[in-house]
Nucleic acid binder design. Structure first.
Lengths: 343, 343
DNA sequence: CATAGCGTTTGGAGCGTTCCAACCGCCTGG
DNA sequence: CCAGGCGGTTGGAACGCTCCAAACGCTATG
């Protein structure tokens, strides 16, 4: 059995084997046109034989560019982030970058750790995807590297943001429910996590707008199934019980549905439920959630474009982009049971 | 407005500001005990002021170690991989490594690309998570860096593997269905993708074992919802139609359920459906899929342990570890409609 | 008083690249 | 016949860091 050989071939090994200087090898590797065909073939051949792979660390050291974009996702389990990440990857690869992901595990400390690792690796730019820590925690990092926060409405002077119009999205859901006849509409909100403040504000404002300010009910609950279950548990203790619940995202909505099912409440007969994100699970026939569709891929692509402006064109003033959300009506919303007739 | 400053402070900047040599700064950064308190404080202070962050590229260049593990996931959207990735991250961080993810997007070419990027970054080890390309494509990479393939039964002389017992898992599902009275049990299989061959073999062998060899029916279909839908579409054209379907994983099973719902087939009345992985969606009340639970976190943790053996203890002979699966019975399986009585 | 030893600090070499200036032939034009 | 130019090639400096050997200033010891 051949011994495992962890040592990598270097550009010098290749140069020696091909009988040329390391500079020539470098030129060949970069696809320079000013290399004779014979030498080029010799170098390529030697590189293949030695299984040579340029050392990205050494390269980025001298180039001062890594051509890698870092992505910190708050939750690997949430399909919405996967959709956004797809958009990021497509746009990044198209522009000659690679995207490297790191999970923040819905924890502020681990999020910070992930950011730090990526920063030490000297990625060219950083995309924050639904981070849970308050945005100020990332401002100091934004001084030394371009950062784009996705799904973060909070405007920062130092970093760019791109998100959907959370306030509008929440308002659309309230409108939809009010049109169905609901009045006691409650909201579950995850505090300061990405997206939460906007949705909460939109909900509150729109309730006021409809003259339902007194029915405004907000309970705490995370962007997860457990968060939805917890929030719903809290709402079940209210008397009178709300007839409709705006979950902060689809994940939480699934938790709400589970809690409702467990409590023997019919959906939408006894309770209407809405989500946010339109993840694939929401569109499964057996779930069919009423929700807000965010333009996930577009969010990711726009994020990369913003990063490139800073990296390649040295833009310094912050840009904040808002993309339009869309209402998707499923079968988890309907008229409240107590409403009789259309009046 | 202050100008954006992409230039990072170096160890020399810190040294100069603190009035010491760069060597001393290096020592402080590495937490060496042989540094006087005064100097240490001065260095730390200077580093903070300059927002200094060690350059991981330069460090890994001289150390020949990056303390980063690369993870290539075949599909970011599949929650099963997220579970495994969690296991990886936990174990990696505990051992002083960081995990960096890259998606292969269920495409052999992009998978190769992802591997190459990570290789160029000189990660200390690589974890392949449900890769779709045949394993031989990664063998040459395994010569220059430790690689562990997860959910890959194919034994390789050059890289380690850790997976659950796919053959056994598939057999358990067949046993379960046979016990319910099924005979026409079909299987959807994604060819050579990770996990597929073992499950297919287990299905075939167990059908034989039960004397149902003639009812063995295999159609092509990927590890995705669309794959499940396609496979089910093909099966719906068979006459007689199978009474039970073994989807290759939960994702595909969701597609099968959708196709069955669309075709007006009751589950489990007209058709029993099983998955594989036990992802969270399978456990939602409205789905409640019969499936096989893979020890996801354990798979990830074991993978990291194997990597560390190669990295830190220079193990060279390959190890192949198999973890036990478990049957999870839900409400998508039941006796076939045509069966009368227990005979 | 010279020496040894200890804790602390430092300069310099080297990690694998890129890139620049310089160089080598060779051809062309005056 | 020589200056100039050009395609092809090369050595060496630099990137930011670690680590080694050596030096430093002390104190304790013979």
């Amino acid at each position: 059995m051949v011994k495992h050989r962890p040592k990598h071939a270097t550009i010098n090994d290749v140069a020696q084997r091909a009988g040329v200087s390391k500079s020539l090898v470098s030129l060949v590797m970069q696809g320079s046109p000013n290399v004779s065909d014979t030498r080029r073939r010799a170098v390529l051949e030697a590189a293949r034989e030695l299984r040579y792979r340029p050392n990205a660390a050494a390269r980025s050291l001298v180039r001062q560019r890594s051509h890698v974009l870092g992505v910190v996702l708050s939750d690997l389990h949430n399909p919405f982030f996967a959709d956004v990440a797809d958009g990021i990857e497509v746009e990044a690869v198209g522009a000659g970058y690679r995207a490297l992901l790191s999970s923040g595990f819905l924890d502020a400390e681990r999020e910070r750790n992930a950011v730090d690792t990526l920063l030490q690796l000297r990625v060219d730019g950083l995309l924050l995807l639904g981070n849970v820590a308050p945005i100020e925690r990332f401002e100091s990092a934004a001084l030394s590297i371009p950062i784009v926060a996705i799904s973060r409405e909070a405007a920062s002077e130092w970093m760019d943001t791109v998100c959907d119009d959370d306030q509008l999205g929440a308002a659309m859901l309230v409108d939809h429910l009010v049109a169905l006849g609901h009045r006691r509409i409650a909201h579950i909100s995850p505090g300061v996590a990405a997206g939460a403040p906007g949705r909460r504000a939109g909900y509150q404002a729109r309730m006021q707008h409809h003259g339902l300010g007194e029915h405004t009910t907000i309970v705490e609950g995370a962007f997860t199934r457990v968060g939805g279950r917890d929030g719903m548990a809290a709402l079940l203790e209210r008397d009178p019980r709300p007839t409709a619940v705006l979950a902060p995202n689809d994940f939480a909505a699934l938790g709400v549905l589970e809690a409702a099912d467990a409590a023997g409440l019919g959906v939408p007969g006894d309770l209407s439920v809405t989500g946010y994100d339109n993840i694939f699970v929401a569109r499964m026939g057996r779930v069919d959630l009423t929700t807000i569709e965010q333009p996930a891929a577009a969010l990711g692509q726009t994020g990369v474009k913003l990063l490139r402006e800073r990296i390649e064109e040295a833009r310094t003033e912050a840009r904040h982009i808002i993309l339009p959300p869309a209402l998707v009506v499923g079968s988890t919303t309907g008229p409240p049971a107590t409403t009789v007739g259309p009046g």
